[in-house]
């Protein structure tokens, strides 16, 4: 599926300073019953966000109007658990384009990039600086420059660089996806398959 190109993003951020945020929290299994990729944002963090009677839980960050933006900042080991791409879809559909954490679970990280969300892995110390800056001023901005591979806290000017492989970076900047790439090399794949015996 095509997604918006990602180059430069300056935005306020939503803080979620919890470790091991698993994909069952991001989107519980009972909301995986759709056969189309629509409306998953409504159920993002469903059980942290809403009471059993569907009223919003006032103390959850997504229900606090002082926090908003296209960047979600999570604690260490973000996205552990299931391979459900629905977790990344829910984050994208809600309006986030970037998730920042000091550590990501593998499958979530791959799923996010595949649908056009940039996962930015920073040091523990930098993550703490981000949480503190948002705590001091929820309207503070963060700038993520994919070309330069840097993340900058506008409040303090603190900057850190992040890693991403060149292939995926190129894809995100241009809005390309892996299926385009694989379709273009189908004859090579056929040749490989004909020699590959299993």
């Amino acid at each position: 599926m095509a997604y918006d190109k990602f180059t430069l993003l300056t935005s306020t951020a939503v803080p979620l300073p919890i470790e091991n945020v698993d994909t069952d929290q991001i989107i519980p299994a009972r909301f995986l019953k759709a056969t189309e990729r629509k409306g998953f944002g409504d159920n993002l963090f469903r059980d942290w966000r809403y009471n059993n009677d569907d009223t919003p839980k006032k103390d959850f960050v997504l229900n606090n109007p002082i926090y908003s933006g296209k960047i979600l900042v999570g604690g260490k080991n973000f996205g552990s658990g299931s391979s459900r791409e629905h977790a990344a879809w829910a984050i994208y559909d809600y309006g986030f384009r970037c998730v920042v954490s000091s550590f990501f679970a593998d499958i979530f990280k791959g799923n996010a990039i595949n649908i056009g969300i940039l996962p930015v892995q920073v040091s523990e110390a930098f993550l703490d600086q981000i949480f503190k800056a948002i705590e001091v001023d929820p309207a503070t901005s963060i700038t993520i420059d994919l070309n330069a591979q840097t993340i900058k806290l506008e409040a303090t000017g603190a900057t850190e660089s992040f890693a991403i492989n060149g292939y995926k970076k190129h894809n995100l900047i241009n809005g390309f996806d892996d299926i385009d790439y694989l379709q273009a090399m189908k004859s090579d794949i056929k040749a490989f398959a004909s020699l590959h015996s299993i």
């Binding site: 791409e85 499958i107 799923n111 595949n114 996806d177 892996d178 299926i179 189908k186």
Partner: peptide, 12 residues
């Protein structure tokens, strides 16, 4: 794998 990758395996 995620669903994008399911589509990759089906198609390639």
């Amino acid at each position: 794998i995620g669903t994008s990758e399911v589509e990759m395996v089906l198609s390639s």
